[in-house]
C-alpha cells in the first residue's frame, strides 16, 4: 500500500510517521500541505507537531490549508485517514471528526507512557488489535483535552465512535476518558497519543507483557482499504 504522510509548516513527527509506515510494510509518500495533489496514495496520515505554530487554535490553520481540500474529499470518499495528535486536532477542525481538543486541565504539557483501551477494532486502522485490548504508547501534548457539545457526545455514544479510551490515568481531563475517535464509516481515525513512536523493538515504552515498545505497530501493519460499511 502507498500511504501519504502530509507535512505542514511546524509538523515534527512526519519522519517518524513515514518510518512507522515503512516498518508496517508499506511505502511512505511524503506530501506537502501547499499542494493539491495526493499522488495517488491509498491512505493518509496527518502527523503530530505544531502546524503553523498552533496559531489561532491547534490544527485550525492546517485544516484550512490547500491539501486539506483533497484530504477531506478523500476521507468522505472512504479513504483511510489517520490523524495523530496535531493530526487529530486537524480532523476535528476540518469537521471530519466531532468535538474539539483544548488545553489540558492541568495547564501543563504532559508527556507519559499512556495506557489505552482499544474500543473499536473494526476501523481501517485498528484491525490489528483485539477488542478491549490494552496497549501502551507515548503521549505528549499540551492541548489534548477532548470536549464536545451535548449533541456531539450523544452522537459519539449512539454511533459508538470512541476508538481509544485512556486507562488508569486521564492525562488531560478529556471528557469520558476519550483518547481517540473514529467516524461512523470507520475510515477516519484520530487519537492524541503517538502510535508511530512505538513501532521498533526496544525503542517504545516497555510493557509488562514484554512486547517491548511495539504496541503502536499494528496501526501501521494492518491498514484496510475497504471496510464494512
Amino acid at each position: 500500500m502507498r500511504i501519504g504522510v502530509v507535512t505542514f509548516p511546524g509538523t515534527l513527527d512526519d519522519r517518524d510517521a513515514q518510518r512507522a509506515v515503512r516498518f508496517g510494510g508499506h511505502e511512505a509518500v511524503a506530501l506537502w500541505h501547499g499542494e493539491h495533489d495526493l499522488q495517488g496514495v491509498d491512505a493518509l496520515v496527518l502527523p503530530g507537531g505544531f502546524s503553523y505554530g498552533d496559531y489561532l487554535r491547534s490544527g485550525a490553520i492546517a485544516a484550512n490549508s490547500p491539501i486539506m481540500t483533497e484530504v477531506v474529499a478523500a476521507a468522505e470518499a472512504g479513504m483511510p485517514v489517520l490523524g495523530i495528535c496535531n493530526g487529530f486536532q486537524m480532523l476535528t477542525e476540518a469537521r471530519l471528526l466531532p468535538g474539539a481538543l483544548t488545553r489540558n486541565d492541568s495547564g501543563l504539557f504532559v508527556r507519559r507512557d499512556q495506557l489505552l483501551k482499544v474500543e473499536r477494532n473494526d476501523t481501517a486502522w485498528t484491525s490489528g488489535y483485539s477488542t478491549d485490548e490494552v496497549i501502551t504508547i507515548p503521549l505528549k501534548n499540551g492541548e489534548g483535552r477532548f470536549v464536545a457539545t451535548a449533541d456531539q457526545l450523544k452522537q459519539i455514544e449512539d454511533e459508538n465512535l470512541v476508538a481509544f479510551r485512556y486507562v488508569d490515568v486521564n492525562p488531560n481531563g478529556s471528557t469520558d476518558d476519550i483518547a481517540g475517535l473514529t467516524n461512523a464509516r470507520g475510515n477516519v481515525v484520530g487519537l492524541m497519543p503517538h502510535p508511530e513512536h512505538a513501532v521498533e523493538l526496544g525503542f517504545g515504552p516497555s510493557t509488562d507483557r514484554l512486547r517491548d515498545g511495539l504496541d503502536g505497530l499494528p496501526m501501521f501493519t494492518k491498514v484496510l482499504e475497504q471496510i464494512a460499511a
Binding site: L56, R57, A60, N64, T92, E93, G99, A100, T102, V147, A148, T149, Q152
Partner: peptide, 8 residues
C-alpha cells in the same frame, strides 16, 4: 467558521 470554533 474560522476565527472561532463553535464547539468551544
Amino acid at each position: 467558521d474560522m476565527l472561532a470554533n463553535s464547539v468551544i
